[in-house]
């Protein structure tokens, strides 16, 4: 469904990615792991068209999308829940959800979609008219995911959804990601919290300073002594 082929990307003269390749099949949850600065966000930005790779190719549904604009890629059914949530602070909660439906605006009515996301995140319904900027961090993350769901995505990219959140909320977010996946959305999950990410994903890739160093089914990675030591810590 999504194929990243030998990508190299730069910020000015600084190389951030070197020959990165990933493949995600329909229905999967795949994790992309790595330490700070490994290049996880850069990889996602290449996929969403926010950054043009200097080399390599991105394919979505068998079509070459390398160099397409972010809005064109969003139109194809790929939705990004960006790092740092990126809620529109001066739009209300419902307006944030409304703009999430933008790619679907010709297909139907955004309001008809609301009950579905409120069922997943009831707290958002209580805060409907509040402006996005006044929500707590956890609520903002829920809104970011809910906004992504409004687009009825075929594939959803999530960039560190657990960052800075209390364990209970993190658990809730991860359960929700599993649920979204079980309803037919393919997931590419970027995380630093490798333990949790491996628990819900079938496969994972591990990035280190811009290069892929490991990849494979999660059980296999979770048993690898070197990986355990480097990424899974001792929790």
């Amino acid at each position: 469904m999504l194929k990243v082929d030998n990508i190299s990307a730069y910020y000015g003269n600084i190389q951030a990615l070197n020959n990165v390749s990933l493949k995600i099949e329909e229905g999967e949850i795949v994790s992309l792991l790595g330490a700070n600065g490994a290049g996880k966000t850069t990889t996602l930005k290449v996929i969403t068209g926010q950054i043009n790779p200097r080399q390599g190719k991105v394919e979505l549904f068998q079509q070459d999308i390398t160099g397409n604009n972010p809005e064109e890629i969003a139109d194809r059914g790929l939705t990004m829940v960006p790092e740092g949530r990126k809620i529109f602070p001066d739009l209300s909660v419902v307006e944030n959800l409304k703009i999430g439906y933008y790619t679907q605006r010709k297909e139907g009515d955004w309001q008809a979609k609301l009950p579905e996301v409120f069922e997943v995140f009831p707290v958002l319904e209580e805060r409907k008219q509040q402006s996005g900027g006044t929500l707590s961090g956890g609520e903002q993350q829920m809104l970011a995911i809910a906004r992504g769901l409004m687009a009825e995505p075929k594939i959803m990219l999530l960039d560190e959804p657990s960052l800075g959140l209390a364990p209970l909320i993190v658990e809730k977010i991860f359960t929700t990601i599993e649920r979204i996946n079980s309803q037919g959305t393919t997931i590419l999950l970027v995380e630093q919290n490798a333990n949790l990410a491996l628990k819900i994903s079938q496969r994972a890739y591990i990035l280190e300073t811009g290069e892929l160093v490991h990849s494979g089914p999660t059980q296999q990675l979770a048993q690898d002594e070197k990986i355990k030591e480097a990424y899974l810590g001792t929790h």
Binding site: T48, Q50, N69, P70, E71, A74, D75, T79, M80, P82, K86, F88, P89, D90, L91, E95, K98, I99, G100, Y101, Y102, T103, R105, W110, R147, A151
Partner: peptide, 24 residues
């Protein structure tokens, strides 16, 4: 309107508006 919300979203954060599919 949807386009109106797109205008305000673009005003607040152009890059994220594009991720939402808005042709800024």
């Amino acid at each position: 309107t949807m386009f109106g919300v797109a205008i305000r979203a673009t005003a607040q954060d152009r890059e994220t508006a594009r991720l939402m599919g808005v042709n800024t």
